[in-house]
């Protein structure tokens, strides 16, 4: 069995009196696609925010194990430090840099893998220029890969919705992660776009060897993509397992009762 790349244990997050995430354990193994599902307001996004350092969790441990490296504890680190350690994410409510071009958005993602500073910017020595060229070509290839070639120089805010979601993924990939967290990547996409997304995500895993943890409401996508599924409700983990087992799990069905749950 492959090694774990992410191990979360007992994660808890309180907002005032509200316990949005309640002692959740979760792990992702190298090369896996894992889905985190649950009804609206179950605490999925909050879970992401806690492990990526945007909220300080009330309790629990978050460890990442970059392939071939020592495990690292992420508790108390800032979001940028976590990204540098190799865990990148997208946002449920798209958070691009609206007045920058698509290419620039992805180039910003390269920021933590490059090093030019003020002096470099002003004098533009050979090293800076080489770095800048590399940034541009890597970013361009990422855009191409995500099918955004024709939008390279368009402002992010002018892109169609589906393209914006894919741009977020491209931007996250630019940080060279070994683990990618996607928060509802298919939200607002039409069926055709969703199918394309399915292929893209598989491709990211197969070709680049990046493990993926995704939150998604589109059950068809979840079932076809995931190796394993975690289900949360009211902040608690209520089930985990392979897609088939989750689909037939009575507890899960009950949690979703009243919500659409189609396969």
């Amino acid at each position: 069995m492959a090694d774990k790349v992410l191990n979360v244990s007992g994660l808890t997050m309180d907002f005032g009196g509200l316990r949005a995430v309640d002692t959740v354990d979760l792990d992702v193994r190298q090369g896996e696609i894992v889905a985190l599902i649950g009804p609206n307001g179950a605490g999925k996004t909050t879970f992401f925010n806690c492990i990526t350092g945007i909220y300080p969790p009330t309790g629990g441990d978050v460890m990442v194990i970059p392939p071939g490296m020592e495990p690292q504890r992420l508790n108390g680190l800032k979001p940028n430090q976590i990204t540098i350690r190799g865990m990148a994410r997208t946002f449920q409510n798209i958070r691009l840099f609206p007045n920058m071009t698509a290419l620039e958005n992805v180039m910003v993602g390269r920021h933590c893998r490059t090093s030019a500073g003020v002096i470099g910017a002003i004098f533009r020595g050979p090293a800076t220029r080489a770095e800048e060229r590399e940034t541009i070509s890597i970013s361009y290839k990422l855009l191409q890969k995500m099918g955004l070639k024709k939008h390279v120089n368009d402002l992010a805010k002018n892109l169609p919705y589906g393209a914006q979601r894919r741009l977020e993924i491209a931007r996250a990939l630019a940080t060279d992660p070994f683990l990618l967290l996607l928060d509802e990547p298919a939200a607002g996409m039409n069926p055709q776009e969703t199918t394309e997304l399915d292929e893209l995500i598989t491709q990211i895993r197969d070709e680049d060897g990046i493990s993926i943890l995704l939150i998604e409401h589109d059950m068809k996508l979840v079932m076809s993509l995931s190796d394993r599924i975690f289900v949360v409700d009211f902040g608690r983990k209520i089930a985990e397992g392979i897609p088939q087992a989750i689909k037939d799990n009575p507890v899960v069905i009950k949690a979703y009762l009243g919500e659409e749950f189609e396969v």
């Binding site: 979001p79 940028n80 990204t83 990148a88 691009l96 920058m100 620039e104 993602g109």
Partner: peptide, 16 residues
């Protein structure tokens, strides 16, 4: 520019 546009996304991109 990224910082001006969205601080949180900016941090999530590994920018201090």
């Amino acid at each position: 520019l990224a910082l001006r546009e969205d601080e949180i996304a900016c941090q999530a991109m590994g920018i201090d």
